[in-house]
Design a protein around this nucleic acid. Sequence first.
DNA 1: GCCCGCATGTAACTGGTTACATGATTGT
DNA 2: ACAATCATGTAACCAGTTACATGCGGGC
Lengths: 191, 191
Amino acid sequence: MAGARGSQTEMAVLGALSIEPMTGYALREAIRDVLGHFWSESFGQIYPTLATLERHGHVTRGGSTRAGSSLFAITTSGTERLRDLLRQPVQATPPRNGLLLRLFFGRSLGVEACRALIAQARVDAQRRLDEFDAIAAQVAGETQHSDDMLFWLLTVSAGRHSARATLAWADESLAVLDAAPPAPADRNETG
Amino acid sequence: MAGARGSQTEMAVLGALSIEPMTGYALREAIRDVLGHFWSESFGQIYPTLATLERHGHVTRGGSTRAGSSLFAITTSGTERLRDLLRQPVQATPPRNGLLLRLFFGRSLGVEACRALIAQARVDAQRRLDEFDAIAAQVAGETQHSDDMLFWLLTVSAGRHSARATLAWADESLAVLDAAPPAPADRNETG
DNA sequence: GCCCGCATGTAACTGGTTACATGATTGT
DNA sequence: ACAATCATGTAACCAGTTACATGCGGGC
């Protein structure tokens, strides 16, 4: 569990606790709501990870918000552990883009369905872009630690660039499909 | 195995065979080399998937290139199956961007390490962009089926937009970090 | 003859997700 | 009291990856 593999979950958990102590439940929500744009952890991994980290002394189960719940806080060794983890090389996840896979086989899927997929991708990208704009404004206004703010805005900016790129690609692609002859799906009309 | 889950592997395999018949080995290489920019299948899944598809009559094991090897070809029912699969809704994969996760905790990682990560991301994006340019030229030149070419160029274009967005984000981010005070990692030198 | 690349598979392991089980606290 | 939510965990399952086992054919 301390191998190079499970380290990503550890990184997210320790990182979140490095900002402020919280319960496992709050941790889950923080990861979903704050890191959600570029990271996700499944529910069932948070508590086991917390247990492992506690065994290694990287986090402590401190004073309770109320009976039955515990506030997890990062320790000094946990801070060191986080630093070590952050310094590990980024492991590239194998790409799996369901949209592009379908478009690649667009001849079999049909031009109309492709158009619909791209249009939907455009809508999604626009929504994401709006969300990022809102988040950027919120982060710039609320965040107390200006040290953190700089980096948080960096991740938001990445999302915005990505969303804008998708928008541009979608517009360009829809134009290309409009210009192309509306051949029906998978027909060989070479005769 | 015929559930909504394993369907993505089936889609890639059937799609590849819809272009031309090949051996399982060639299939693996085609998926790696041709779909590699947006899709990946692990080796150990291709043969089981082929076996399942054969049982369902979606592919046939045809004439051999030489003893011991078989050419897999898509059948009529396989073509239908492919169409059905392609029409299934795109299932979004939960985001897991190790780079952004590290940058988000940049205060703990340190400004210098962040700069290095972004610089590396820039190098990678530039390399991808060059590759896409080469692929686009190659596809436009070689491809016989102009029906396929249109869609293939769409996926290449997506890669280019994405790579260019990463380049722009990296440049912008490096400028931001240069402008910011070079505070060392995780130190409180407020005293 | 021997090694390398093509070719087909299987087995074991790992990481991640979902669903389930349980109970405390708070507000109505 | 009752429902909703907070909170902590466990068990079962599934998908995907890696490594291993095997054998043929052709070139050196």
